[in-house]
Amino acid sequence: MIKLEHIEKYFDTSKGKVHAVKDVSLNIKQGEIFGVIGFSGAGKSTIVRCINLLEKPDSGKVIIDGEDITDYSDKELSSVRQSIGMIFQHFNLMPSRTVFDNIDMPLKRTGMKKEDRIKKITKLLELVELSDKAYVHPSQLSGGQKQRVAIARALACDPKILLCDEATSALDPKTTASILKLLKTLNEQLKLTIVIITHQMSVVKDICHRAAIMENGEVVECNDVYELFANPKTELGKKFIETSGSSENFLKLLHTKGKLEFIDENLPVYHLTYTGNATAIPLMSRLYANFGIEANILYGNIDYIEEKPFGQLCVQLFGKEPNQDIEPALEFIRKMGVSLERIK
């Protein structure tokens, strides 16, 4: 659907040339929600702007639906862009126009008859649940409502692709959730391919099917979101995953404080990550039954990503007898398909 091949992009700044995107290749499939996550300055906004060529790559190819659009003229691009909707962090609605006229902007130029446009806009407003706001100006709307109008505007010309540039970053958590839910619905009902740029791992976790992690202009990791969480291959990947759950708080406490009153400091702390089938096994009680090993749970959480369970535990293990060897127990845990890491 969307194919980026070896994209390179440089920017001239006052401090010299900046290599903003380094040899990025992505293959985004029809009908999926694809996330691009990275800290600010990672080049993710540039890469999404290359998809509709708001930024022209210095080299590399942009292929949409099998068509290489990299060298399209401005006129040709104008029609390609009608089939690619885009929404932004700061909504970018026209302040002098009503909600209705904002959505009408891309429609008006298609030559569609006025009655048809009115019908279409009414439908779009129903879709984003803002039917009662057609004739108000954007300044009278809340952030979430503004983003809904922006989504309606982006969908006006029935695009196959929707690009979201930090679309939820300016919204509070509750509004973010409602916008993400709407995007998910659009993905399912309209078979819309959605590309989401974000620095919030929770956004990726909540609705993306696949995601790429970017750092310094490069894609360092790209995988199914579940795999990304279950087996992060890079340090950055791990860092983002930590930020998405509450284990971050515990790990921070453990690493910065060094000594915690409620933890026996003579015992090691293990971090257990279990995915898929492993979550079905009553692991802790088996440890006790089979090996006489007790576990003190310091942190625990089970998340559901794409409806699949993903669990994390931080435990201290100790035997009934003093100085009991816990190695057989650790071996058992590994055999059960749970990844184990000693973190202290």
């Binding site: 401005d74 862009r81 970018n92 891309p106």
Partner: peptide, 13 residues
Amino acid sequence: GLIEASKAMGLRP
């Protein structure tokens, strides 16, 4: 951002 959004909508100069 308004100019960018307009370009993204396919508006001509």
